[in-house]
């Protein structure tokens, strides 16, 4: 029972971390290595707005999500647009931005364990014999709603359909008047907002520390590689696989092996099925 409940919660939080990365990569083919940094930015901005400026919690969250979106758009508009299509440079550029942001925070004095955000709702609930606090439940509900919302967005709105078209065949989308640079910029903005959503949901459970930026980056890459780069459904299912695997390791082997699971998953996937569970690109290449 414990495994089931905490496995699901862990999986949802992994899915939340990975979604933004998967979305940006799926649409613009830019691996956004600043994803973890954006996640942390949202945490610290919310913290600053809430604790230093004294805005209501909800408003500081909304504002910091907006900040994140704008940051993502600016990052694409001024840096990544110049290197788009050059695979290595994309990674170097986005990772450099991420490093600059994360280490900038560290340099600016955001160190230690003192930065926390309040949970949405105090208290806990018993599911069977397992106590679960409300915040984790809220996180799960919002996570699932978010996935459902994204599905509706990409299947039923003009912009969402255009994003989907671009993800599948950029040039064919271009022929239909879908401007790929504009769409990639939008995708980057959405990805940044998704990183922010993940941050606002997950960070109240612990401290906001710079290191978790790197952790989130690794986890989201693991999720995306296992699920197949560029596939959102893949990322979602992979999050569940890794999530449960992690909890199982925690229960049966020991909690410090948790991180190994994600990295092992990457390695195993690359050896056994390099295109990932739901990836198509490599398979296409093999066919050609």
């Amino acid at each position: 029972m414990e495994i089931l409940v905490y496995g699901t919660i862990n999986s949802v939080s992994l899915a939340l971390m990975g979604l933004g990365f998967a979305m940006v990569y799926g649409i613009s083919r830019v691996p956004n290595f600043a994803h973890g940094a954006l996640y942390i930015v949202c945490g610290f901005v919310t913290w600053t707005l809430f604790h230093k400026i004294g805005l209501p919690y909800f408003i500081s969250i909304i504002l910091s999500l907006c900040v994140n979106g704008v940051l993502g758009i600016l990052m694409y508009r001024f840096v990544l647009i110049r290197v788009r299509g050059m695979n290595i440079s994309e990674i170097i550029a986005s990772y450099a931005i991420g490093l600059a942001i994360l280490e900038g925070f560290r340099f600016g004095g955001f160190r230690g364990m003192t930065y926390t955000l309040p949970v949405f709702m105090e208290g806990s609930l018993m599911i069977g014999s397992v106590p679960v606090d409300f915040h984790r439940l809220i996180m799960m509900v919002i996570g699932i709603l978010l996935v459902a919302g994204l599905w509706v967005f990409t299947h039923h709105t003009r912009i969402g359909l255009a994003l989907q078209g671009m993800a599948q065949d950029e040039r064919a989308a271009l022929m239909l008047g879908i401007d790929s640079d504009f769409m990639a910029m939008l995708a980057m903005g959405f990805g940044a907002v998704l990183a922010g959503v993940a941050a606002t949901l997950i960070l109240p459970l612990g401290n906001i520390v710079v290191e978790s930026g790197y952790h989130v980056l690794i986890m989201s890459i693991a999720v995306c590689i296992v699920g197949g780069l560029g596939s959102w459904t893949g990322a979602f299912f992979a999050a569940f696989i890794i999530g449960y695997a992690q909890i199982l390791t925690v229960v049966f082997i020991g909690s410090h092996f948790q991180m190994v699971v994600a990295l092992l998953a990457i390695i195993l996937t690359l050896i056994l099925k390099p295109s990932g569970l739901f990836g198509q690109q490599k398979e296409l290449e093999e066919r050609v």
Partner: peptide
């Protein structure tokens, strides 16, 4: 249907 609707972007 989605293909056609993606075409209807403009």
């Amino acid at each position: 249907l989605e293909n056609l609707r993606i075409g209807g972007y403009l």
